[in-house]
Amino acid sequence: MPRKTATPDEVGAKLTAFLKRSHNAKSVRVDDVRLLTGGASRQTWSFDATIEHADGRSETLALIARADQRQTVGMMTRDAEYRLLEAAHAEGVPVPRVHLMGDDSLGAPFFLMERVDGETIARRILRDDEYEGARQKMTAQLGEILAAVHRVSIERHGLANDLAGPLAGKSPAESELQRIEGTFRSIAPEPHPAFELAIRWLKARRPASGEPTLVHGDYRLGNLIIGPEGVRSVLDWELAHVGDPMEDLAWLCVRSWRFGNDQLPVAGVGQREDLFRAYEAAGGRQVDAAAVHWWEVFGNLRWGVFCIMQARAYLDGLSKSVELATIGRRTAETEWELLNLMESA
């Protein structure tokens, strides 16, 4: 059954009490509580908090609460996401600054982070005049930022236990393909011959890879906050893992993330060569274009399986969202792109 989401007033009252306790504040006022995204299990709340500290100092913070209604198996915990955001910030990746790790006051794990202003809606970023300057700069910026993501040391930041990595004795490519194939076989309500062809193609061409790095895992338009001056912040680290850095470069180029700007493979704003050049110049790993191509084919398969997964949440009655229901029909666009990529290879 779909779970009832807490009302903004209920969440606001709980956050007020939590902030008052955590800051040992004289008073706290929470305003403008809004649910930004509410999945079946995970929610993002936006609010403003005015905190009057014990020393009389007062400040107003623009904050985001990331909460789990229930823990989903295989999903990154909020605690791990919090530590990952801290580590990424320390390495110079533009991310929202974390504010406080939560407790049990929302009845589910959560943390608070800074709310970064800007635009996340792809259609506006790609079409509005306001972002013309940003579009010119984004390809290079996205390469530079990714170089910083891949520099985040798993060991030094103690993230090894938080992140999934390659299976024992297997390369990142082999491991990720095995995982996505397993997911596909366990959730797809019907057969998909196009995915069978793609899996066969991918298995025959797995790239060797160098030293694994931190991989963001969902680095694309929609998960980036953009201002008129360019990229402000990288969001949505829940799919981060240890793997092949080429995976992130390729995912950014998956056709669905071009939102109609098909001729500009990098997020609908730029060319692959310019992305690769900026990435390498900023200290990223040496780019293997053939491996990136393999990961782009893989990325289309992965997004196709994610479409099925989201439709499953509707089919299984976890959500009644019309968006989740219709996303099942987007699977065909990934099949089409897979066939195009296999045919042109």
């Binding site: 029909r329 987007r330 066939l339």
Partner: peptide, 12 residues
């Protein structure tokens, strides 16, 4: 497979 996927896309 290409033909059937094309037919799916003419719908979706």
């Amino acid at each position: 497979v290409q033909r059937t996927v094309r037919d799916k896309l003419t719908v979706s």
